[in-house]
Design a binder for these strands. Structure first.
Lengths: 260, 260
DNA sequence: TAGCAAATGATTGACTTCAATCATATAAAG
DNA sequence: CTTTATATGATTGAAGTCAATCATTTGCTA
């Protein structure tokens, strides 16, 4: 029997809520919870899936909870090769007892995963990146500090005055930062908030290490972060000659080239 | 053919890692990824499930990622009735434009869920509770601020100096706090860190609202938080006579009794 | 109010998943 | 080196899942 449109919609949003809460539910439980037949439950699932509000699995469905996190993971998986290499080089700079800052790029995610494999002792890890927490929070023997700040919707990142203030109060031995583009003029990033925070971090960090893979070469972004003379180590899969072709000349020793 | 024990173990931890990364994987992909037959993949899954390192589903498996969050949600589901009522009363105290602090108890989670249903305009939501972020981060028109601090493993909570400092810099109109126990002597909580933060919040908040359901009555905890005269509104499913039976006498108007 | 469109539950057959069983190869134990 | 224990892949039958189809009820709209 036909039922008012609004009832259908209500049931479907209840379904997404349920999945959001429980993560996963098999069809049978969905039927029971929503008090509908299997057929209807399936219809709801395929409707919601086509709206990309849930993910169906064989036998049930997954909520798009931590959708921010997974999208982050997916982005990471694209540049895997280069980012893995960059991460390995970056981690080799970390010594036991250090205080390490990781920022909000996908490279930071790769570094965190690399830390899972080779973890120096007694690290203090500092970040404004919520997507890193699952990884960093479970590293044994490391202390993880999250900067405070305003939550940027859909970004899983904390920014704003609070974040800048919190960063300025940290002791940082080495910071790993990323940018969205690099040109002859230097490094670029998309948002003023991000740049303010990065500048605060650079000021507090004994060493600021920029990690950029080749996809960033030649790109710009709305906001200018820094010019080349101020870039201390650049960790990249690019070589010096490749950089020179794009008009970027670095002093010797500045580039840490990540090779296979 | 039999294979060295260490190979099996390695494959199984690789499997947990995979699930941790991807959240969910169907059997077929597991077989491909691990390069084993379906039978072996299933055996691995049931082994890991009995160790409670993953969760099987029909057709695949889930990683125990955000296990902290889900355990939180499960804890929440226990006291649902009372906490829902308390949350409703609590939310009725929130007016548009307010700056609201939510602390780390499960009651805070219930309040967040209630906010999802009845959301006053232009709220600023402040918390040290990571489990709340998924809920709070998606509330339209509200601004969410996370206090910084050290990540408490398995608790999804931020504490420590940074958190106290960050709290002291906030403007808070109303704070919703919880405690682990209430006796004649006042309110009790388990950790010194938590109490330091709560005291900082109370100092900054125009109004500090304690939310405790009846399960807390008569319980104590290692650390003393506050005595009764300083408890401003107490939101509870307990009634004045019930409290008096346990030796707790409140001035009129202090208790906001949540009834069905 | 009449006619259409839409939502529902039941049923069906194709397909998938699953646990159990078995033969085999080989790691570990003695 | 011999024996034992165990990990593996293949097979099989039972059970579960899925999309398509159909009849029915009922909301919506002209």
């Amino acid at each position: 029997m036909r039922v008012p449109r609004q009832v259908v919609e209500a049931r479907r949003s209840r379904l997404t809520e349920l999945l959001l809460e429980r993560g996963y539910l098999p069809i049978s439980e969905l039927c029971e919870e929503l008090d509908v037949s299997e057929a209807t439950a399936r219809r709801d699932l395929s409707a919601l899936e086509s709206e990309e509000r849930i993910t169906r699995t064989y036998g049930g469905a997954l909520g798009e909870f931590n959708a921010t996190f997974t999208s982050f993971r997916e982005r990471l998986r694209e540049g895997t090769e280069a980012k893995g290499l960059i991460a390995r080089t970056a981690v080799s700079l970390i010594k036991p007892g250090m205080s390490v800052y990781l920022d909000a790029g996908t490279t930071a995610f790769a570094i965190a995963q690399e830390l899972r494999r080779h973890l120096p002792e007694r690290l203090t890890l500092i970040t404004n990146n919520l997507a890193l927490l699952e990884t960093l929070g479970s590293l044994p023997g490391a202390k993880t500090i999250l900067l405070g700040g305003q939550l940027l919707e859909r970004q899983s990142v904390l920014l704003g005055n609070e974040a800048v203030k919190a960063a300025s109060a940290q002791e940082i031995n080495i910071a790993f930062l990323s940018a969205q583009g690099m040109t002859e003029q230097g490094l670029w990033n998309s948002q003023r908030d991000i740049i303010s925070l990065q500048k605060a971090v650079i000021k507090r960090a004994a060493r600021s290490c920029f990690c950029l893979d080749r996809s960033k070469l030649g790109r710009t972004a709305p906001e200018h972060l820094t010019s080349w003379p101020k870039v201390a180590p650049l960790v990249s899969d690019l070589s010096l000659p490749e950089l020179r072709q794009s008009g970027i000349t670095l002093k010797p020793g500045v580039l840490l080239h990540s090779q296979p």
